[in-house]
Simulated scan of single mutants.
Amino acid sequence: MTGELRRVTVFCGSNPGTDPAYAEAARALGAELAARRIGLVYGGGAVGLMGIVADATLAAGGEVTGIIPQHLWDKEVGHKGLTELLVVGSMHERKLAMADRADGFVALPGGVGTFEELFEVLTWTQLGIHDKPVGVLDVAGFYAPLLGFLDSAVTAGFLREGHREILRSATDPADLLDQLGAWRPVEIQKWLDREQR
């Protein structure tokens, strides 16, 4: 990772959530990406926070690549006004394509799909499968319980402090993108018990 963010993959909810702050944050992130000339890569939906972040990026003159599985496109939840749209065969293909096109990853609020995508790319960074930064936009404290849980995993001996620090967080899109751009991978042994042998 050179520190240059040319494209960022954003994971987020296909619903808007109950707090208007979630949609406001999605709009702010989209506008900030466009202002920095960072392309948005996302799941291709026109609904929920997905549609909001895509529309905000496009409205600010940014480029947006959507990647959506055929079965979701068939349900007419896909965005038809993107810079680029890829319709793929499966969720696995979608996630791989989103990861391949990204220089970093951001998670907005969302549900289990968002969490699963976030943890997959976080694991890939931890294992050295890629060397890309990962962050969460902690809107209205949404991710505070998750961040606290990861701290507990360090205390419990299941996660190294250095690996915990891979996941960056901020309440402001500009701050988070600055952190991701400054991030550098660190070589850390994953297996805690190897030192005890």
Rank of each mutant, 00 (worst) to 15 (best):
A46G: 13
R184Y: 04
T114D: 00
T171C: 13
R168S: 12
T18P: 05
D74R: 15
V154E: 14
R6T: 11
L72Q: 01
E84V: 15
P145T: 08
T125W: 00
K132R: 15
T123S: 11
I52C: 01
L72Y: 02
A107I: 07
R160S: 14
A35M: 07
R194A: 12
G81Y: 11
A156F: 13
G43C: 03
L40K: 02
T123M: 05
E165H: 15
A182C: 03
L122Y: 14
R164W: 08
T171G: 15
W124E: 01
L177Q: 05
G128E: 09
A54Y: 00
E165V: 11
F119Y: 08
D175M: 10
L180D: 01
L40V: 07
I38G: 00
G44Y: 00
D55T: 14
V139Y: 08
T114G: 01
V134P: 02
D178A: 13
M50T: 00
L33R: 06
T18E: 10
V154M: 14
I68M: 02
M1L: 12
C12K: 00
R184L: 05
K132Y: 11
F115H: 14
V186H: 12
E76D: 14
G89K: 05
P133A: 09
Q70I: 03
F115G: 03
A25D: 06
A97R: 14
G30C: 12
D172T: 11
L29R: 06
E187S: 15
L5W: 05
T155N: 11
V121S: 06
E63D: 14
G181I: 02
A21Y: 06
L159F: 07
Y143D: 02
G111F: 04
T9M: 04
D172W: 07
A21E: 14
H130W: 11
T2W: 09
A59E: 15
V41R: 01
K80R: 15
N15K: 12
E187H: 15
L137W: 09
V112F: 13
I67V: 15
E116F: 00
E93W: 02
S90R: 04
L58T: 08
P185N: 07
R94G: 04
F11T: 05
R168P: 00
L29V: 09
G135C: 10
D138C: 12
L177R: 01
T65E: 06
A31N: 08
D19W: 09
G13T: 00
A60Y: 10
A31T: 10
G162T: 10
K95P: 01
V121Y: 02
I38Y: 00
Q179F: 08
L86I: 07
G66N: 06
V87G: 04
L33M: 08
V139G: 07
R101E: 01
L33F: 09
T125C: 09
V121M: 07
G3Q: 08
G110L: 08
L192T: 10
P185S: 06
L49I: 10
S90V: 03
A174F: 10
K95E: 00
G17M: 06
T83W: 05
G17I: 04
G104V: 00
L150P: 10
E4F: 12
Y22A: 09
V134F: 02
L85A: 13
L49P: 07
D178M: 03
R27P: 04
T125H: 03
V47C: 09
V87N: 07
A56F: 02
L180A: 05
A153D: 11
L177K: 02
N15E: 15
D151P: 11
